[in-house]
Design a protein around this nucleic acid. Structure first.
Length: 576
RNA sequence: GGUUCCGUAGCUCAGCUGGAUAGAGCAACAGCCUUCUAAGCUGUGGGUCAAGAGUUCGAAUCUCUUCGGAAUCACCA
């Protein structure tokens, strides 16, 4: 039970005792007391006025008196207007602290029994990953971690778009203009080489639009299984996969299951027949099949072309059906940009019309685009921020900052490199994940991502500081739970209060599918610690009981920071 | 044109299931390292929460209107 719930239930008892009226604890409004007022939590008494038939302050006064008189957990109160500020006793906070410190799984919510598939990344194999993909990947990986922490059974998946006309364009340009170049011969990462081919094709098309016909011919050959085309396709795709693999590895992204579009693009065709049989789809005279969604405020949606081939939507319908059946899913999250909001609206609606009751369990985690100061990234104008370049740049920034401080002198080089990568990536991941997914975000390539303030490295640094203190305290067994050993100071109570709210934050973040909630929580916790650190000497504390309590407290803080940041996929170093 | 989303400090963002005087960071300015890591801490200045109306004891938060921005509505994926 959270402190808020505890207070609400006691307040409910107070109302019953004072006014003989039942007022459900769930309807009590309890929040953390504002900084400028005395107290831990505040009960808003306005909703109780029609029960008390008294002025707001008087009502607060009466309830406050009853609580302090009848519940030992409350140590003091003050009523200001309609706000009853309540202080909980030191013992209450010590017990709270002890239960957190004694629970290794603190923050892991009980199993929901829900099995959820999260699809994200889903790249095209005709060009390398850019900053937009980074946001997608980080969100997908992080939301997966988040749902796991909230008790779901999560399957991470990706659907690689490895076929289609765009791939053929790269293949065609490579054949005509790249003179057999390979990643080995050029020393270029495979996905970048294929990306160059794609760019080259755009030039060829400009010079002579007829090349498009050649590409379509190539696509037809691919669909027929022409050995030469398939071989080329396989070779170039493999270059891309190898390149992606490196980028994923650098970002720490993994999947439980990878789908390839060349295996799934024909799925969904039998659903079209089913829809026709059910009368929810219609066939036009030219043979094309549609679903009429005008009654739902949308348009008519094509599901089968007049030549009998399927469209993107058809495939998605089939893929969803197969996944729900194969994995017995309770829910499916798609991490896809908000430019596809309409697509997912239609997807859910069509599935519902086909009679699938799980259609409403599909959740489109729709995130905003990453924009540059001058607007959207455009590959034609060369403003795309390349993922590999950015990761490298972050590494170099971290390296420069570290070397300047000289704090890592004497550390082996490979360990330093690992650390630079951890810090650079921490800055990048935090920068992206701290923003509400729904919102579009701005990235200015001219300004480097900050390492100070509300950033990943700030939290990493805080963690390293705590570790440094714990290293120096050999006399006290690390990890020992000395939570109840001593009275807590006001600042320590603030820390315990924040720690105690972590499980709620996980639940809140998970229900909003928002890692940003966790990011901001971790920042608050780190900031609160730094203030505490600044004016409370820990190792110099003469009283052994107080010293152990403090060490327990900071060890618990470090652990909670690690757990929260692990949800974001960010590692915390012991030194930096 | 229809639908959907967004607009909070100079900049980047929190806060949005209605609660007290709207918070951080960056940037600017002024302090704090002989003292557990200064990637830190403290302080100052900075706001018509796009505008207007409504609901309410109470609105940045809910509703409507207007203005501004974005996405989308393909026999593209």
């Amino acid at each position: 039970m959270t402190a808020e719930q505890f207070i609400a239930s006691r307040a409910s008892e107070a109302v019953k005792a004072l006014y003989n009226v039942d007022f459900a604890a769930a309807n009590m409004q309890v929040s953390v007391t504002r900084k400028d007022f005395e107290g831990d939590y505040t009960l808003v008494v306005f909703p109780l006025l029609r029960i008390s038939h008294a002025a707001p302050a008087a009502t607060g006064q009466a309830i406050g008196e009853w609580l302090v008189a009848n519940c030992p957990e409350f140590s003091a109160f003050n009523a200001v207007q309609g706000f009853l500020n309540l202080s909980l006793s030191n013992v209450y906070w010590q017990e709270t602290f002890a239960s957190i410190a004694g629970d290794p799984d603190f923050g892991q919510l009980p199993s929901t029994g829900r099995r959820v598939m999260v699809e994200f990344s889903s790249p095209n194999t005709n060009k390398p990953l850019h900053l937009g993909h980074i946001r997608n990947n980080l969100l997908g990986a992080s939301v997966s971690n988040l749902l796991k922490a909230a008790g779901d059974d999560v399957i991470k998946t990706t659907l690689v778009n490895d076929r289609g006309v765009h791939i053929c364009k790269s293949m065609y340009a490579w054949q005509k203009r790249f003179d057999g170049a390979t990643p080995e011969s050029t020393g270029k990462k495979g996905d970048h080489l294929v990306g160059d081919c794609y760019v080259e094709f755009a030039k060829m098309e400009k010079e002579n639009p007829a090349v498009l016909d050649d590409v379509h011919e190539m696509l037809v050959k691919w669909e027929e299984g022409d050995p030469a085309v398939r071989e080329l396709w396989q070779m170039m795709n493999q270059w891309v996969f190898d390149g992606f693999e490196q980028t994923y590895k650098a970002l720490g992204i993994t999947f439980d299951k990878t789908y390839y579009e060349h295996e799934t693009y024909l799925l969904g065709k039998e659903l079209v027949q089913k829809g026709l049989d059910m009368g929810v789809f219609v066939k036009d005279p030219d043979g094309s099949v549609w679903c009429d969604l005008t009654a739902d405020g949308l348009d008519r949606k094509l599901l089968l072309r007049s030549d009998g081939t399927s469209v993107y939507m058809t495939q998605d319908l089939g893929t969803a059906e197969r996944r729900f059946a194969e994995y017995k899913l309770d829910s499916h999250v798609y991490v896809v940009g908000d430019e596809q909001n309409y697509h997912f609206q239609v997807l859910k609606l069509v599935l519902a019309k086909l009679g699938f009751d799980w259609a409403e369990q599909i959740f489109h985690l729709s995130y905003g685009m990453v924009e540059l100061p001058e607007g959207k990234m455009k590959s034609r104008e060369g403003t795309v921020v390349d993922a590999d370049d950015l990761i490298e740049k972050m590494y170099l920034e971290a390296k420069a900052t570290s070397e300047e401080s000289g704090k890592l002198d004497g550390m082996p080089q490979d360990e330093k490199d690992r650390l630079y990568h951890m810090i650079g990536l921490g800055a990048l991941k935090y920068f992206i994940l701290k923003v509400d997914p729904k919102k579009k975000m701005l990235f200015n390539p001219k300004e480097s991502i900050d390492f100070n303030g509300n950033t990943g490295p700030f939290i990493q640094y805080t963690h390293a500081r705590i570790c440094s203190i714990l290293r120096k305290s050999e006399t006290v067994a690390a990890g020992a739970n000395a939570a109840g050993a001593a009275e807590l100071s006001a600042k320590e109570i603030r820390l315990v209060k924040l720690l105690a709210s972590y499980p709620q934050k996980v639940a809140e973040a998970a229900s909003a599918y928002s890692p940003a909630v966790i990011a901001n929580y971790a920042y608050d916790l780190a900031k609160e610690f730094n203030q505490y650190y600044h004016d409370t000497p820990i190792l110099k504390e003469p009283d052994a009981a107080v010293l152990s309590m403090r060490l327990s407290l900071i060890a618990t803080l470090a652990l909670t920071l690690r757990k929260a940041m692990a949800i974001l996929g960010i590692e915390l170093p012991e030194r930096m």
